[in-house]
Amino acid sequence: MNYTVINREMHVGDIYLTAVTSSSIFLIGDADIINLASAFDTPPESLIIGPFVPLTPKGS
């Protein structure tokens, strides 16, 4: 399969951004490959109500 892209004129006015975070990218330009991944873990037990104890992951 042949894939043709024609990029015509691109003129952008004003961009208002609050924040770019967590390995994200804000790109004004061309790129060949963009590969972004994210893992966010906040399971039910991540909200702990009780005595303050040190965090200890499994297996230790």
Partner: peptide, 29 residues
């Protein structure tokens, strides 16, 4: 682009004016 107003970039974020080839990003929280 006429103008960009950006407050903050954090945690290995990239603000890039210009072209690139390969972007690989990964975040674990």
């Amino acid at each position: 682009v006429r103008s960009v107003y950006l407050i903050a970039a954090s945690t290995a974020a990239v603000v890039h004016i210009g072209s690139t080839s390969t972007v690989n990003g990964e975040t674990r929280i």
